[in-house]
Design a protein around this nucleic acid. Sequence first.
DNA 1: CGGCCGATCCACT
DNA 2: GTGGATCGGCCGA
Length: 202
Amino acid sequence: MILSEKFYSDNNVISVGKKLLGKTLCTSFEGILTSGIITETEAYAGETDRASHAYGGRRTARTGIMYRVGGTAYVYLCYGIHSLFNVVTSPEGIPHAILIRSIKPVDGIEAMALRANKAIISEKQGTGPGNVSRLLGIHYRHSGLLLCSNHELHPLEDAIWIEDRGILVPEDRIESGPRIGVDYAREDALLPYRFKVKNGTL
DNA sequence: CGGCCGATCCACT
DNA sequence: GTGGATCGGCCGA
């Protein structure tokens, strides 16, 4: 089942960050389907979160994407090399977003191996936000794509979406901790907004 | 328009 | 554990 706008429009970014664990992130580019189960996320809590690109109400051509309706893809370039994939959550006008940090590869393993320039794909290849995008073929040009438009009507159209395939990650299997690489965020750097499945086991 | 730097990864030691 | 790769976005002049 493809997650709907209702799932993403939840104003509680922490709760959505946790609920995304165990869901399956899918892409279809040029007719090639690849997917992976989300095993790690980070929540970015809008204008009051010093770690967020929207901190203080900063709204530019790039970060303006985060103010769109929940279920919009926010992808941006990091360190000049990596496209990092986020999904906007909350209603339109509130710039909450979840960064997808790790996946367990599922569909299209061969295509992923090709993209990663590896002979085989192990679970390790899906670790790290830059790698997630690399395996799934996500590029910052995809920023602004809607994740819940009905792509099934256009199977050959490029699309990103998230599915619920019935994998349940109970609260006691979720480990929370501080986010990565946000030391500049001062007191907010310590907030436990990073969520991962314990031992990476699903 | 110039300069700085980032929600990172990987090869190498 | 460390440093190089690599470039768009943003800010200040």
